[in-house]
Amino acid sequence: MLAVQGVSRSFGGVYAVRDVTLDVADGEVCGVIGPNGAGKSTLFNLITGHLAAERGEISFLGRRVDRLAPHRRARLGMSIVFQAARVFRGMTVRENVMVGLHGRTSAGFVAAALRLPRHRRDEREIAARADAALDRVGLSEWADRPADQLPIGQQRALQLARALCARPRLLLLDEPASGLRGQERERLAELVEELRAGGLTILLVEHDVAFVTRLADRIVVLDLGRVIADGPPAEVRNDPLVLAAYLGQSA
């Protein structure tokens, strides 16, 4: 599904990500963990296209994507949920979810402005899809509220609804659990489990080791920009290199 091959990126001569190789198989939940400054966010941005790799290749669904702009990668089927609240202000929650689907409908300006039948049919269809996605993440009651009024946890749920609405092949989650309280975190974990059961491929970049260990089929550990371990959670957990990296961090 996703293949990252020998990718590097430096800032001011210091490597944030160095020669990283990782594969995400179809239907797998892959977790990427690492201490602060390990290069998790940089790797995430390289995969989404918000940063350009200096070396290496990234393939998605068998196609080179490392020179494609972020919106092109999104259209290929990568959906992204950011840690930061990236909602569209001045729109309702439902409109926020619908906006990404607009480009995929057919009715033009005249049809939309005059509310012609074809436009109304499109509109109903994507509104229904948006509502289904909102229901799934537990935001149904908020659908008609302005998106910027949502608390941080709900804003992340909104991003998740927006991502799911696009019917992604690969869901990319950047620190989805950060800033969430216990109950919200539990709901998020249950949702990810549901999505995995539905066969969705997920790449989860996360600081919270317990959260990743619970959800991931496989964990990749980054430290100082390099991959230091790659394997099933139980195996990675007891890896001496990983333990050293985390102990070094806390000491």
Partner: peptide, 26 residues
């Protein structure tokens, strides 16, 4: 009312997120 108008508004509000949902910001 129009999709294109909404997409333009989305770019204005948050170009980063607009790209992520597949809008060609350029």
């Amino acid at each position: 009312r129009t999709y294109l108008g909404k997409a333009l508004t989305a770019c204005a509000s948050n170009p980063y997120a607009a790209r992520v949902v597949g809008i060609d910001v350029r």
